[in-house]
Amino acid sequence: MNPQETARQQLGHNIAMWGTPGSGKTTFLGALSIALSRQDQGWKLVGSDVPSTDALIKLATDLAGQRKFPQPTQGIERYRWNLVGAAPGRRRRRPWGGPGPEAVQIGLDLRDPTGEVYALNAASEDLVERLVKSRGIIYLFDPVWEFVKGNSFDYLYGVLLRIAHRMVDAGEFSDGSLPHYLAVCITKFDDVRVLETAEKLRLVTPDTEGLLGFPRVGDDDARALFRWLCEVSRSGNAELVLNMIKQFFHEDRVRYYVTSSIGFYVDPEFRLFDPDDVQNLIPDPDNPTQMKIRGPVYPINVTEPVTWLAQELAAQDRSRR
């Protein structure tokens, strides 16, 4: 890493994406900008260099415009984006006038490695290096994939031990936990199978604040859903994933989110969630082996883990200063 790059990284918060192949890491990033636009809470995502800006444009337009999924990452993609907006709770101008608060700018240095590099091979060294240097991790857990393949544990275990090893060497494992913040994102909430599981567990509540009336799983219940989904994994090893998270991370630095990058289907005419017709993913009529997005993209819980990590890391920086 050259000095310029080092300096740039220090400005932002190094957040890494982590997940099995096909868990939707790239799509998640593509949905991030769309989600911020949909929320209309003043937050926006801008690139901090030309390649990252181009990538941001492509990811978002593929997803929202073309209604197709971004091509999976080859190797490790790095996106340097800035999350810009009013700080939470400070959006209103002061009633007595005067200048408003300064815009908050949170630098994001997102790493999106292809899922394959998590496997225990030589290439994974680079990933480990990047995870070690990051302090925020977005871990995507794909329950559908896990149900079919049951290999989350395989992807997690080796890498986690290597990180731990590096942290021990660097003296950052003294309290027995990694220093990272971890946002565990249960993806594909738009999949009927995931939704039905959550419904059966009575973890779903209607989103009364949102205009569309999407179902939601509150962050407090997300962990329970995660636990259940681990229990039904194909290999039975997914339970270990939960235990490992518990063992390697500080409890207060882990949050669970039930997410969807594309959201549920919403009829453009009625603009309301229909519990009888939720699926926003269909086979592409031109190429039935591929899937495409059926209607508008309404990401669920995509910004929340990112902003949470960014805020926690920013707070950490402030406390260090």
């Binding site: 999949d191 009927v192 039905e196 009888d276 017709d277 699926q279 059926r294």
Partner: peptide, 15 residues
């Protein structure tokens, strides 16, 4: 199907 289900086949628009 009349509504979304695990088959992932889209439901009849007229339910």
């Amino acid at each position: 199907p009349p509504r979304s289900d695990v088959s992932q086949v889209l439901p009849c628009p007229r339910r």
